[in-house]
């Protein structure tokens, strides 16, 4: 054997060797991808995931800076550490992608999702649905004598729990936005123009 040695993580410019590259345990990562809002940019991002066989748990996109035509794509994905690194590097190659942030490793972050839940029913079930909605701080945004539409915001797990509770009470339809996320603290991934 050779006497050559190189300490892991010794090269400060690289984050690649900080985690075990051979780990085969899948991790869930939330990525914030800042893109030029030009035609086809979302197709490029989605095409990358499907073309290279990566997973998408959730994806949200909207223009966040109208004057600068910048959109923010929040994508929740799964993969081994090596795959996650590869996803970030591949996203970085897309020409209209300005920045890729891995909110899962860059520090604490908040994740929120909005859901609309339609619960249909009468009598006790209807009362119970309303009571649970209050506990979850869900708002009633539409009401008939036989239905409610609840609006609820929270972490994806909270929306999952709400759906589980509403299912036996007459949950008949639901829509979820997918995750939007920001880093905690005063560090801005995408400083807002004029902000």
């Amino acid at each position: 054997m050779s006497a050559l040695k190189l300490e892991r993580g010794a090269s400060s410019h690289s984050a690649y060797d900080l985690r075990n590259p051979n780990a085969d345990v899948e991790e869930r990562h939330t990525l914030a991808v800042l893109v030029e809002n030009e035609p086809g940019v979302l197709a490029r991002v989605i095409g990358l995931f499907s073309g290279r066989g990566y997973n998408i748990d959730s994806l949200t996109v909207a223009e966040v800076d109208h004057s600068g035509h910048t959109s923010r794509i929040t994508v929740v994905t799964r993969g081994t550490p090596a795959v996650i690194e590869q996803i970030k590097a591949q996203l970085g190659r897309i020409v209209p992608v300005h920045e890729v942030h891995d909110l899962t490793v860059e520090g604490p972050s908040v994740e929120r999702e909005l859901g609309l839940f339609k619960v249909s029913g009468k009598g006790d079930k209807r009362v119970e649905a309303l009571r649970i909605a209050e506990i979850f701080r869900a708002n009633v945004v539409d009401s008939t004598l036989t239905s409610f539409v609840f609006e609820i915001t929270g972490a994806p797990e909270k929306l999952d729990a709400f759906a589980d509770l509403m299912r036996p009470l007459g949950l008949s339809d639901l829509a979820r936005t997918g995750v939007a996320a920001l880093a905690r603290g005063d560090l801005a991934a995408a400083p807002v123009a004029g902000g």
Binding site: Y16, P21, A82, E85, Q86, A89, Q90, G92, R93
Partner: peptide, 8 residues
């Protein structure tokens, strides 16, 4: 020159 080539 391409970061995505590294550790792929």
């Amino acid at each position: 020159v391409d970061p995505s080539s590294i550790n792929k």
